[in-house]
């Protein structure tokens, strides 16, 4: 399999994730779509690592995973706070930049 196949799969998954971010209203599902985009980027990194024959791409994918884990923790905590005050997890309901 050439790296082109893997990169095409990565591009398709990334696009699906971006579409989900644009289309979905539930903030948790939006977060999941962001995770899908990060995973697609990871697949591209791993493919490039194999294409170039060194492990730097895998290291970058590893760092992406770490940052994604931190991002999920903080993002879900923010979501919980918003849900507690507004009783809703929809991105449409959090449209007022005031208390």
């Amino acid at each position: 399999m050439s790296p082109g196949h893997y990169l095409a799969l990565s591009a398709i998954l990334f696009t699906i994730g971006a579409l989900g971010v644009l289309v979905r209203r539930n903030a948790i599902v939006v977060f999941m779509c962001v995770e899908l985009m990060l995973n697609a980027a990871n697949l591209a990194f791993v493919s490039f690592a194999r294409m170039h024959g060194n492990l730097d791409g895998q290291i970058i994918a590893f760092f992406v995973m770490v940052v994604a884990a931190a991002e999920v923790v903080v993002g879900l905590a923010i979501l919980m706070t918003i849900f507690r005050t507004r009783k809703s997890a929809s991105v449409d309901d959090a449209n007022l930049l005031k208390y």
Partner: peptide, 23 residues
């Protein structure tokens, strides 16, 4: 999304990817 995918695939198709060196 379709436009973005077309852009990405066109970019990938134009890139000289060659084949993987293997790990």
């Amino acid at each position: 999304a379709i436009g973005f995918l077309a852009l990405l695939v066109a970019g990938l198709g134009n890139a000289a990817l060659g084949d993987s060196a293997g790990l």
